[in-house]
Nucleic acid binder design. Structure first.
Lengths: 219, 219
DNA sequence: TTTAATTTTTAGGTAAATCTAAAAATTTGT
DNA sequence: ACAAATTTTTAGATTTACCTAAAAATTAAA
């Protein structure tokens, strides 16, 4: 399995949540920052290798083995991210690109031992679940901050956007995993919200609120 | 710099010790387990990039930047090997292939922090020196076991062959870094040696003795 | 030193992964 | 439903890193 093939599997895996019938060529092209024609070629190859199902113009759907492989890559990615933060003093906005490289390293023992060293973590530094060795992914119950209403509160358990610019924006407002966020007010017309985090109040746009996951808290 | 280019630089670096004028195409081909024609192509490309000097039929010699880059890759390789042994419970015969993959990961901070995590080690699990951040390689004073005479003794400080079969052979005889080895006898006709290691005596072939480095000890 | 053996290079080809441009299929809008 | 817009695929090129086979240069040997 080549590096490029693994990246395509990961892209299809991530997009499958939003496309129930089959992931469109263009969606994959956008996710991979490449051209639709390149995707067409690669998807055809992956279908020949039985890693996904594909009928012309119908989009792609991972096969069981394709999904298993995608999950393995994601497990590696998230374990490496955790390692970088927990053991090498990286912050959550610095780890993505490096994990993107490390996730392709091949060694069963390496990843098993890394998991052990880290104490078998359940989530990565962005709150995303780390698949276990059997490929089970345990999703935490969570809602988008943008869906919360005035007066509600929750604990930050994840983000939807792991770009360093967004994560640095969160840092600036002291939003991190485990923080309690209270919705003090919500604007009808633009979806912006007035929040309280660690005694401080400030407002964030709907776009930002759309990329933060909270676990509901009874007040 | 591609993965393949880095591997060529490393090969030329390692071979330069044995070929003062220039490393022959065939030597590189053997080291890389590839064909001379492929080497010819690649060497030409690396010369265009000023990473090495090359005149037709004259072999290859690393430029300053080529050597600097090769040393960086070797630094990464040896730090990763140390990490695998020190932190992830690998034995010295299991680390080479994985480090071969990890050495190509690009991140200054990653390697800096890894170095720190490991306590700035001076040698890797095979006794090879780990180049520092500035690219200085401090070689330990050492001699091949095969050059020792009857009655001499030394401390094992390195190996010349990091293949798992050789390292497992050493394990079987309890030879590891730091062990004291005494030459009890030496055969003239085949160079084989009778050794004493940790109270036990046994004999090894000249081939084996040619792959073990000792630091001389006054008895 | 002239031939033979070896080494190295060149020429031409393949496979992976990409691209652009054009053709084909599908979806949408009126 | 049919033309227009969009999406997807195909066709043809490019680059990297290999390969085989043949030609050229160097080295060794008689």
């Amino acid at each position: 399995m080549t590096l490029s093939e693994e990246n395509y599997l990961k892209a299809v895996y991530n997009l499958q949540k939003h496309y129930k019938k089959g992931v469109p060529t263009n969606a994959i092209a956008e996710e991979m920052a490449t051209k639709a024609s390149s995707v067409s070629d690669m998807i055809k190859r992956l279908a020949e290798k039985k890693l996904l199902f594909y009928k012309k113009y119908q989009g792609a759907k991972l096969s069981e083995s394709g999904e298993a492989h995608a999950i393995k890559v994601i497990r590696k990615h998230r374990l490496w991210e955790t390692f970088l933060v927990e053991k090498l003093n990286f912050s959550w906005d610095e780890v993505h690109d490096i994990a993107e490289q490390l996730e392709h390293i091949e060694s069963e023992k390496l990843i098993k031992e890394l998991d052990k060293l880290l104490g078998y973590p359940k989530v990565d530094p962005h709150g995303d679940p780390i698949p276990d060795e059997q490929g089970n992914v345990i999703a935490v119950e969570k809602r988008l901050l943008s869906e919360f209403n005035k007066g509600e509160q929750g604990i930050c358990v994840g983000v939807n956007d792991s770009s360093s610019s967004f994560l640095q924006y969160l840092d600036k407002h002291q939003i991190s995993l485990g923080k309690i966020i209270v919705v003090k007010d919500k604007e009808e017309f633009d979806g912006s919200m007035q929040l309280q985090v660690s005694e401080k109040q400030f407002s964030i746009s709907q776009l930002a609120a759309n990329n933060i996951y909270l676990k509901s808290l009874k007040e």
